[in-house]
C-alpha cells in the first residue's frame, strides 16, 4: 500500500558484515560517546537546596484573589465548578450583610469554597471560566499529605492573604 504520510521506513534485516560481526569498532565508537558525556554538564537539579524554575505558564495551586481594596473577588457564581472537568470544586454561596461590605466585592459571596486537590487535574479551566478574575492557578506545587481529607482545600488555604499582610 502506498504511504500517504511518507513517514514509512522500510527496514530490512541484513546479515551482519564482517566488521559488524567483530563488534569492536562499534564498541569503540560507543565507548567514545559515553566518555564524552563524562565531561558534559550534568542536568541534575539538587532539589531541596535548588529548585528548578517553573515555566511562565505553569499551573500550580489555586488562589482566590482579592481586588485592589482587599475585598474577595469571588461571587460564588459557580461557573468554575461547572466548567471543571474533574468536578473538583464545590461552594456554598451566601448573601453579603451591609457590615461585610469591606470584605466581599459583590453582594453574593462564597461562604465556603473547596477544591479537592486529589481530583483536580490542573487544567486551568476554572481560571478561564471565572467572570470575576477571582481564581488563578499561580501557586506552587500542591504538597504531599497522608490523609485524603487533608487534600480538600478550603478558603483558609485558597484565599490570598489580605493586603496589609502582604506588604
Amino acid at each position: 500500500m502506498e504511504s500517504l504520510s511518507n513517514k514509512k521506513k522500510v527496514l530490512e534485516q541484513k546479515p551482519l558484515s564482517f566488521m559488524e560481526r567483530m563488534y569492536l569498532p562499534a564498541i569503540a565508537k560507543g565507548m567514545g560517546i559515553t566518555i564524552s558525556h563524562l565531561f558534559k554538564k550534568e542536568a541534575t537539579v539538587r532539589y531541596p537546596e535548588v529548585e528548578r524554575e517553573f515555566s511562565t505558564n505553569f499551573r500550580g495551586m489555586h488562589s482566590l484573589k482579592r481586588d485592589e481594596n482587599g475585598k474577595e473577588r469571588c461571587t460564588a457564581c459557580g461557573l468554575c465548578a461547572l466548567s471543571c472537568p474533574a468536578e473538583a470544586i464545590t461552594m456554598i454561596a451566601a448573601e453579603r450583610k451591609p457590615e461585610e461590605k469591606h470584605l466581599y466585592r459583590e453582594e453574593k459571596y462564597a461562604a465556603t469554597y473547596e477544591i479537592n486537590m486529589l481530583r483536580c487535574i490542573f487544567c486551568g479551566l476554572c481560571e478561564e471560566a471565572c467572570p470575576k478574575e477571582a481564581i488563578y492557578l499561580d501557586g506552587p506545587i500542591v504538597p504531599a499529605d497522608y490523609l485524603r481529607k487533608d487534600f480538600i482545600y478550603g478558603k483558609d488555604k485558597l484565599v490570598e492573604a489580605p493586603l496589609e499582610m502582604k506588604k
Binding site: T34, I35, H37, L38, K40, K41, E42, A43, T44, R46
Partner: peptide
Amino acid sequence: AYLQDRLGPD
C-alpha cells in the same frame, strides 16, 4: 551517573 550526565549519590 557521570556517564549519563547525572550526579550520582551525593
